[in-house]
Simulated assay, not measured.
Amino acid sequence: MRLKIASWNIRKAVGLDWRRDPTRVLRVLKEMAPDIILLQEADRRLAPRHPALPLAQVRAAGWDWIDADPATPSIGHHGNAILMRPGLEVERMVPLELPGLEPRGGILARIGNGEEALTLGALHLGLRRRDRLRQVAKAVSAAAVLGGPVLMGGDLNEWRKRPDALRLPEGWRTISPGASFHAERPTMAFDRFLHGPGLEVRATGVWPRHLAARASDHLPIWIEIA
């Protein structure tokens, strides 16, 4: 199974011009053409947490999504969402509550094509390093229960470039495609992927600033895996 996976903090679809424009976000994602999208800040912050990307527009753009929080109109869980192209199936989904000073969460999902499966995680980690370390440890442990190769991504709020910055288990790697924040002048690599054994990384990148259409204060990142 070969997949292109994107990750993007869409800042509730509010762009650098301070206009909320979900159509612009979806247009950028269509141009990226990934198989799976990991989103952060995909919901409004306050209850009942309406999605920043209206579900009718998501469906019209050709994406399926994981309903990780059926009790709300949210598109995900704690602002994290996973969109998929049709043809991929969710075998199991786990909403994560992550420890820390701020309310943080994530989504884990085992996604397959009928023959092979991959465990994916969408994460938005805390601002304090001590919280990030605890949050990553919990996400890795929970992903192990779902089994198989694991890839997680999102706005990890980690600025350190050291490969051991998040204290991953043996056999795990951090993939930092490049500077993605601030979208106006990217200097910080907050957006990253984490993966365990069993995956081959074919290519990675940051979507160019001029193609990101000023749709968020983060630039999207992407990875191609086998």
Score class of each variant (00 low, 15 high):
Ser7His: 11
Ser7Glu: 06
Ser7Gln: 13
Asn9Met: 08
Arg11Lys: 12
Lys12Tyr: 09
Ala13Leu: 08
Val14Gln: 04
Gly15His: 01
Trp18Tyr: 08
Pro22Ser: 09
Thr23Trp: 05
Thr23Ser: 10
Thr23Arg: 08
Thr23His: 07
Val25Tyr: 00
Val25His: 01
Leu26Phe: 04
Leu26Ile: 06
Leu29Ile: 11
Met32Tyr: 06
Ala33Asp: 10
Ile37Asp: 00
Leu38Asp: 01
Leu39Trp: 01
Gln40Asn: 14
Glu41Tyr: 04
Asp43Thr: 03
Leu46Trp: 11
Pro48Cys: 03
Arg49Lys: 07
His50Asp: 11
His50Glu: 13
Pro51Ile: 04
Ala52Asp: 00
Ala52Thr: 01
Pro54Cys: 04
Pro54Val: 02
Ala56Ser: 11
Gln57Asn: 02
Val58Ser: 02
Ala60Tyr: 07
Trp63Ile: 08
Trp63Ala: 03
Asp64His: 12
Trp65Gly: 05
Trp65Ser: 11
Asp67Met: 10
Ala71Val: 14
Ala71Leu: 14
Ala71Gln: 15
Pro73Leu: 05
Gly76Asp: 00
His77Tyr: 15
Asn80Lys: 08
Met84Gly: 03
Pro86Glu: 12
Pro86Leu: 13
Gly87Tyr: 02
Glu89Gln: 14
Glu89Ala: 13
Val90Cys: 13
Glu91His: 15
Val94Thr: 09
Val94Pro: 01
Pro95Lys: 12
Leu96Lys: 04
Gly100Phe: 12
Leu101Trp: 10
Leu101Phe: 10
Arg104Phe: 15
Ile107Met: 07
Ile107Phe: 09
Arg110Ser: 09
Asn113Phe: 09
Glu115His: 15
Ala117Asp: 05
Thr119Leu: 12
Ala122Met: 07
Ala122Phe: 03
Ala122Thr: 04
Leu125Met: 04
Gly126Tyr: 06
Gly126Lys: 05
Arg128His: 12
Arg130Lys: 11
Asp131Asn: 06
Asp131Ser: 03
Asp131Lys: 04
Arg134Asp: 15
Gln135Phe: 13
Val136Ser: 04
Val136Asn: 03
Ala137Met: 09
Ala139Ile: 04
Ala139Ser: 15
Ser141Leu: 14
